[in-house]
């Protein structure tokens, strides 16, 4: 079975301000991009399961064709830099997406 890392060229996470984490999944060509978008594997339900977070903490799933990208935004578990922080920049929260199975 193929996973997202087999077909994507970039899978990354980063803060979008101190309250949100945003994930970008970029594809090499329009065919791959459309195939993954149409498969619908990246959705609010699957993201909430991947990260073990409530559905309402998934703030957006955006398909952005000009960049051949799917963007996912979730609420940060804590405000960036608050007590208990483990990733101030939010740059290492992407790994669960790597092994997301695609049809």
């Amino acid at each position: 079975m193929k996973t997202l890392k087999d077909v994507a060229t970039v899978i990354r996470s980063k803060n979008a301000g101190p309250y949100e984490l945003t994930f970008d999944v970029l594809f090499p060509d329009i065919t791959t991009y459309e195939r993954v978008v149409e498969s619908g594997v990246v959705n609010a339900q699957s993201v909430s399961q991947l990260y073990g977070i409530p559905l309402e903490d998934v703030k957006g799933i955006i398909h952005f064709a000009p960049a051949l990208a799917i963007k996912v935004t979730i609420k940060r578990p804590r405000v960036s830099g608050n007590l208990g922080e483990s990733d101030v920049y939010g740059a290492q929260q992407h790994a669960p997406f790597l092994t997301l199975a695609i049809n």
Binding site: K14, A16, D24, G60, I62, T73
Partner: peptide, 8 residues
């Protein structure tokens, strides 16, 4: 355009 933004 996506970078560090919640909606491009």
């Amino acid at each position: 355009t996506l970078y560090e933004k919640s909606d491009p």
